[in-house]
């Protein structure tokens, strides 16, 4: 186990600046999730830590040692790939012990490590099978087993669950989290799925266009996003944004509808975004009129999609409501939960 420090790291592909001045400190034993939309640079950063991509400038340290010039096998990391990347001609046991064999670990020790990892992952009965004879979930477990047997300082996961079906993904999510609790190894996990990030991470690094948008604990990012991008990316359904301007303690949407600012009355300016999460809108006769277009009951809640003025809005009500598309309901924003963002996308309140 070790801490990981990423200091002023840049990545260029020719003239394209893919990663810009990345600085992240990951404490020993932390489970850090890099999350962001496709192309934001999260996988590139992970591959740079793994040694699969060169670092254009800056330094990456693992356990206090700069690893920029070390080969992947010298970095004491193990990586789980999105598409498993198992050796198809080897059995499960051979796949798991390949790295140990290359490191000339004696066979009894090798077997003991494979048996231990197989027991942790419930693979004991599959050790003689080849990858083609396994289900998707089992293959993913073998890929994790291959990482575990090496007992590395850092685990790297590159979107390991995105090839699994929804149900299995939830199950494997819990298994990976449990594995981390059990082994306590520093883990860096890349995903584009913000729910995965929220449920698994000790800390989340939100990335946007090759830059770190915000770093923080999952609920901190949810409750207090510093940028409009983070506010919109974290949370499902996503936060509502109503554009407009604020003056003298009032927010007027671009359609001329007045919304309360509550404790944020001091905020003023043009081209603002009035952010409110779907669950922070409640029904009330004195509220803002909303034209309902779609009603989606999920069982646990009812999501109502519609428009305030001409701007799209989603509400999530815990109650089971008898609302039909075409109806007009009145909603009240929870004034303590507002997020006001300026023209540049930075938080103002």
């Amino acid at each position: 186990m070790a801490n990981v420090a990423i200091r002023s790291v840049n990545k260029y592909y020719g003239a394209f600046h893919a990663l810009k001045e990345i600085n992240i400190d990951i404490a020993d034993g932390d489970f850090v999730v890099l999350v962001g939309p496709s192309g934001c640079g999260k996988s590139t950063l992970l591959r740079m830590i793994a040694g699969l991509e060169d670092i254009s400038s800056g330094e990456v340290e693992i356990g206090g040692q700069v690893i920029n010039d070390l080969l992947p096998q010298e970095r004491d990391i193990a990586m789980v790939f999105q598409n498993y990347a198992l050796y198809p001609h080897m059995t499960v046991a051979e796949n798991m012990s390949f790295a140990l064999r290359l490191a000339r670990v004696p066979k009894p020790e090798r077997d003991a490590k494979v048996t231990r990892a197989a027991a942790i992952l419930g693979l004991e009965n599959l050790l003689d099978r080849r990858p083609a004879q396994l289900s998707g979930g089992q293959r993913q477990r073998v890929a994790m087993g291959r990482a575990i047997v090496r007992d590395p300082q850092v685990f790297l996961f590159d979107e390991p669950l995105s090839n699994l079906d929804a149900k299995l993904r939830v199950q494997m999510r819990a298994e990976i989290k449990e594995l981390h609790e059990r082994l306590g190894t520093t883990t860096i996990y890349v995903t584009h799925d913000q729910i995965e990030a929220m449920t698994m991470a000790d800390r989340i690094v939100v990335m946007q266009n090759g830059e770190v948008a915000q770093v923080g604990a999952p609920l901190d990012l949810y409750d207090l996003p510093r940028k409009k991008f983070v506010a919109g990316f974290i949370g499902s359904p996503a936060m509502n944004f109503l554009s407009g301007h604020a003056k003298a303690g009032h927010f007027l949407t671009s359609d001329g509808i007045e919304l309360p600012l509550g404790p944020n009355a001091a905020v003023e300016g043009d081209d603002l975004s009035y952010g409110i999460r779907p669950e922070h809108l409640r029904l009330g006769d004195s509220g803002v009129p909303m034209h309902v277009t779609v009603v989606e009951p999920t069982g646990a809640e009812t999501q109502v999609l519609g428009r305030i003025g001409e701007q799209p809005v989603v509400c999530a009500f815990r109650e089971r409501l008898d609302i039909r598309p075409g109806a007009v309901i009145h909603v009240l924003p929870d004034e303590d939960k507002l997020h006001i963002f300026g023209k540049d996308g930075h938080r103002l309140n």
Binding site: L52, Q73, F81, Q82, Y87, P88, F98, L102
Partner: peptide, 25 residues
């Protein structure tokens, strides 16, 4: 490519990757 990268991380050089991974595949 990820299979070859997995071999690199496992500690296989280009020749070992050729012999132990690429040729059998």
């Amino acid at each position: 490519l990820s299979v070859l990268e997995a071999a690199r991380i496992d500690g296989a050089g280009p020749l070992r990757t050729l012999v132990s991974v690429v040729l059998p595949m």
